[in-house]
């Protein structure tokens, strides 16, 4: 099936087998191997990308479901130079092996948007919005992205720094 995706601001048309996941389309058909396949079951978050600004596990979604969608992958986060979030990950050593990192970065970007839009989490006291980026909110909201190197202290410090720079927290 032919579909058109706007990937990292560029419209691209691909012809995919309907069984192909969005992750495999990105990695295979489009050569964007930054997004990683850690489990192919939505359990690790390494494949997290932004679709129309929201984070999703791209391994759990079929490419053909995204005709006309706008997709941002890790390759689209830098704009000539590293984004503040990417730079903060390097500064705070928010990774070791780096395999989960593309997913962490996309997830963090989406997460900060959700927070700003007043989406509650398991750590929220109410459903009314107006959430702050507390440690509890941050770590709860990022717990869908596993890091076996366990760089959570660095990941959280990096996200906090980028969010503060952005005025979001």
């Amino acid at each position: 099936m032919k579909i058109t995706l706007t990937i990292n601001k560029h419209a691209q048309t691909v012809d995919v087998d309907p069984r192909v996941s969005l992750l495999d389309a990105l990695r295979g058909e489009l050569g964007l191997t930054g997004s990683k396949k850690g489990c192919d079951h939505g359990q690790c978050g390494a494949c997290t990308v932004l679709v129309n600004g929201r984070r999703i596990n791209s391994c759990l979604s079929l490419a053909v479901m995204h005709d006309g969608d706008e997709v941002t992958t890790v390759e689209g986060l830098a704009n000539g130079e590293l984004s503040p979030l990417q730079a903060a990950f390097v500064e705070h050593d928010g990774f070791q092996c780096g395999f989960c990192t593309p997913g962490q970065l996309c997830s963090a970007t989406g997460m900060l948007g959700e927070l700003e839009d007043g989406w509650p989490s398991h750590a929220s006291d109410s459903l009314e919005g107006g959430y702050e980026l507390t440690e509890e909110e941050l770590s709860e909201r990022m717990s869908g992205n596993l890091c076996r190197c366990s760089c959570y202290p660095g990941i959280n410090a990096a996200i906090r720094q980028a969010a503060e720079k952005d005025g979001a927290a």
Partner: peptide, 21 residues
């Protein structure tokens, strides 16, 4: 010191075993 491979890892440019086909 920051990792010299840091930039490659935060931009998706670092190529792991399954990344070059």
């Amino acid at each position: 010191m920051d990792r010299p491979d840091g930039e490659a890892k935060v931009t998706g440019a670092a190529t792991y075993a399954a990344d070059e086909v």
